[in-house]
């Protein structure tokens, strides 16, 4: 019985993969590193300002500027494509895209399936709550309802407090929806990356929200994500290091976050 089920499922799977294979002919040759400025397909989920978001139909943000600068440094052109968060992992796993940049935290779990560049951004999670909330640390979230973006480290932090698959964790497609749930009273707090939370509060002062920092939350590092075994990784590692050394990285960082990057801590992530 089990064997037959496996057969059916794998037939189904083959069928789906065959279908998936049909739609992606425009990705220009992913292997064979000629030096004629090859265009790389870069997958992203453009719903994560200021890292990447859609502005008048164009994908802009810190990640976009960084990946463009790094690609140029490494001798490529980058074509950033908005594919969405969950499909992004499929794109890389199936080698439909050459790399992904989407404020992706480097984790041991993910490293099993994907390759990552050296860290290009240091992040921690922050708690977003209504101004009048009594929550003042991560520990206060016990027994409360927390909204997060599905499959983010914010969710992992929430799970470390409330338990894995806790019914008190509401997982949304993106942080905007999670914050809307908070604003409409369906959640007591949102846990998300500092970049997102800071930008949201800065841009929406009328929403009466405040940010809670918790030093016990783990530091995270964002990396460019490649298919396992991609030979692009080495090129981009070198390029990112060069951008950090020549000050270009700091320039881009200040443009988007308005603050100086902590280059020392960033190096710890290696």
């Amino acid at each position: 019985m089990k064997k037959r089920l496996a057969l059916i499922v794998s037939l189904f799977l083959t069928f789906m993969l065959a279908l998936a294979g049909c739609g992606t002919s425009q990705s220009e040759g992913t292997s064979g590193g000629g030096k004629e400025m090859k265009t790389l397909k870069v997958a992203t989920d453009a719903a994560y300002a200021p890292f990447e978001s859609l502005e008048n139909g164009k994908i802009v943000g810190f990640d976009v500027d960084l990946v463009n600068a790094a690609a140029k440094e490494a001798g490529y052109k980058a074509n950033v494509v908005n594919v969405g968060w969950d499909p992004l992992f499929v794109e890389i796993k199936e080698k439909k895209s050459d790399l992904a940049v989407s404020a992706i935290t480097i984790t041991d779990d993910r490293k099993q399936t994907y390759d990552f560049s050296v860290p290009y951004y240091l992040s921690t999670n922050e708690i977003l709550v209504p101004e009048n909330s009594t929550i003042s640390s991560g520990a206060d979230l016990k027994g409360k309802t927390v909204a997060v973006q599905n499959a983010t480290t914010g969710q992992e932090v929430a799970e470390s407090i409330l338990g894995k698959n806790s019914p008190h964790i509401k997982k949304f497609k993106n942080n905007n929806l999670a914050i809307m749930e908070l604003l409409n009273g369906g959640a007591d707090a949102v846990i998300a990356d500092n970049g997102v939370v800071d930008t949201y509060v800065k841009n929406n002062p009328d929403k009466k929200l405040k940010i809670i920092k918790d030093d016990s939350f783990p530091m995270e590092f964002y990396g460019l994500m490649f298919p396992k075994g991609s030979d692009l990784k080495a090129d981009f590692d070198k390029a990112i290091q060069k951008l950090i050394d020549n000050g270009k990285y700091t320039e881009i960082y200040k443009k988007w976050f308005g603050t100086e990057p902590d280059l020392e801590k960033l190096k710890q992530g290696k």
């Binding site: 799977l13 789906m16 992992f89 796993k93 399936t113 599905n150 997982k171 497609k173 929806l177 749930e181």
Partner: peptide
């Protein structure tokens, strides 16, 4: 999308937990 914990929600959640798309999505499809 509004985090109603129905079948697709758990499919997405499983994808997010293991970073493997086919197991959850084919299971939900089935």
């Amino acid at each position: 999308v509004i985090a109603a914990p129905e079948l697709m929600y758990w499919g997405n959640a499983m994808q997010g937990q293991y970073y493997r798309p086919w197991e959850p999505y084919l299971t939900t499809a089935f």
